[in-house]
Amino acid sequence: MAGNVLEFSDDKFQSDVMDADQPVLVDFWAPWCGPCKMLAPTIDEVANQYEGRVRVGKMNTDENHVTATQHGISAIPTVILFKGGEVVERFVGVTPKEKFAEKIDSHL
Score class of each variant (00 low, 15 high):
Met18Tyr: 01
Ala2Glu: 14
Gly57Glu: 13
Met18Ala: 07
Asn4Cys: 01
Ala68Phe: 10
Val92Gly: 04
Val5Leu: 08
Asp11Trp: 00
Val46Gln: 07
Gln14Lys: 14
Asp21Lys: 15
Val56Cys: 11
Trp29Pro: 10
Val66Asp: 14
Asp10Gly: 01
Ala47Arg: 05
Asn64Thr: 04
Phe28Asn: 08
Leu81Gly: 12
Ile43Asn: 05
Cys36Ser: 14
Ile76Ser: 07
Gly3His: 12
Val94Leu: 14
Met59Ile: 14
Lys58Asn: 07
Lys58Tyr: 07
Val54Met: 06
Ala47Phe: 05
Gly3Asp: 12
Pro96Ser: 13
Pro96Val: 10
Lys37Leu: 15
Ala30Phe: 02
Arg90Ile: 09
Met18Asp: 02
Asp21Ala: 09
Glu86Gly: 01
Val46Ser: 08
Lys83Ser: 10
Thr95Gly: 01
Val66Glu: 14
Glu51Val: 04
Leu25Ile: 06
Arg90Asp: 07
Thr69Arg: 11
Ala2Arg: 14
Trp29Asp: 00
Val79Cys: 06
Val17Pro: 12
Ile104Glu: 11
Thr69Asn: 10
Arg90Asn: 08
Asn60Lys: 02
Asp27Leu: 06
Pro41Thr: 07
Asp19Val: 01
Asn64Cys: 03
Asp11His: 04
Pro96His: 09
Ile80Arg: 06
Met1Asp: 02
Lys12Gly: 01
Asp19Gly: 00
Leu39Thr: 05
Gln22Ser: 13
Pro77Thr: 09
Asp62Met: 09
Ile80Phe: 03
Lys103Tyr: 02
Phe82Met: 05
Met38Glu: 11
Gly57His: 05
Glu89Asn: 14
Ile80Leu: 15
Glu51Met: 02
Val92Leu: 08
